[in-house]
Design a protein around this nucleic acid. Structure first.
Lengths: 200, 200
DNA sequence: TCGGTTATGTCAGCCATGTTGACTTATTTC
DNA sequence: GAAATAAGTCAACATGGCTGACATAACCGA
């Protein structure tokens, strides 16, 4: 009853679709040709919102069982995929402050999902590695997301992969692109097990 | 110096890319064929993270000048694009609680960006409309996002639009898809101006 | 070797935005 | 007229952003 689908699908409350004014809309006189019509672009913005909203749903639900939040997921994800990254790298990737990061990172370390190890060339650095436990959780969290992505890629049809990749890369700030490339090119291989946490 | 790009690009700290173990990785024995390799899917997950991270940057910066946050943007966006929707619709779209919504909605109303109007068929409903001021802000916030989207679509190449649309739709939870379609099909036309706020 | 810079960690405190549960009011619907 | 519904509200709490200041250890260049 309260369901929007119902509501709209039944045509009872068509979201006031009975347009009163049918003027061109938007930027009054400042026409902005040269790209897709504004309306179409905003549709993509909305779709992106809905897609991302649901993309995070499954892991969020799992995280609750562990007493973690989405912030923990992000940290664990990058540490798992790019083992051995430094705290500074993580700050840069997540674009959050040291304080924000340290809170969640500390919890992940305390609970045995991540271990630190001093850098060999520069012993000030604290390199981050997932433990076996950490890898297990990271995989559990990403599993539903992988399933969703695989299904969506398949649904969109062949050829989507390459285009989507280019699209997403182009969505990133230009100055950030080299960083992102470097990060993504970096080894997704877990290194030494830092002692506690057990080895795989 | 602290810059990750620098760091990585210069090859100084290649994120410990000196892989120690080169085993297939991931789900130890539980091979999950049938879709893309896990690693590739996780790359898309990362790209999606980076893309969304930057997608929200520009409006976030603008919002700060108005003393608003991302939550206000979301509300204003949907009210602007789908004028006349009900509070219940908004709760459903945003998937947040009444309390969370009411805080930001009240601020938007108090500051004259949104007006309410009792429904005509059901006077319990409070239909939401943007004021001229609200529309102006909504457009200002979405402008950089539209630019970004247009550029990314162009960069990805022809044919991206259709594939991306299908991809994003498929990323949404199956049960939610009819809702989303209904919402997106609904009139993006602002109706009556509720008195204060002035007409356009 | 010393002094400046860097990488990290930490303290204290603030703010935005999400949560729950209970309750009121107005209105519709049966 | 009673039950259900749409919305608003209160109180209280959790998460995860933020700032600024400061401590420590290690590196690096003069």
């Amino acid at each position: 009853m309260t369901d929007l689908t119902e509501t709209l699908a039944r045509g009872e409350k068509p979201l006031r679709a009975k347009a009163l004014r049918a003027k061109p809309r938007g930027n009054g006189g400042a026409r902005k040709r040269a790209s897709l019509p504004e309306a179409k672009l905003l549709e993509f913005a909305e779709l992106l919102f809905f897609a991302y909203r649901d993309f995070t749903r499954d892991p969020d639900a799992i995280l609750k069982d562990f007493g973690f939040g989405r912030a923990h997921h992000r940290v664990l994800h990058f540490v798992n995929r790019h083992s051995g990254l430094r705290v500074a790298d993580l700050l840069d990737i997540l674009t959050i402050t040291k304080q924000s990061l340290s809170r969640v990172l500390k919890q992940l370390i305390d609970k045995g999902y991540i271990v630190q190890q001093a850098g060999s060339s520069d012993r000030r650095e604290r390199l981050l590695f997932p433990t076996a436990k950490g890898r297990a959780l990271a995989e559990r969290l990403s599993a539903p997301q992988s399933v969703r992505l695989a299904a969506a890629l398949k649904a969109a049809g062949p050829g989507t992969e390459a285009l989507l990749r280019r699209f997403l890369e182009a969505m990133v700030n230009a100055e950030e692109r080299p960083k992102v490339s470097s990060i993504m090119a970096a080894s997704p291989v877990p290194l030494k097990e830092g002692g506690k946490g057990g080895g795989s």
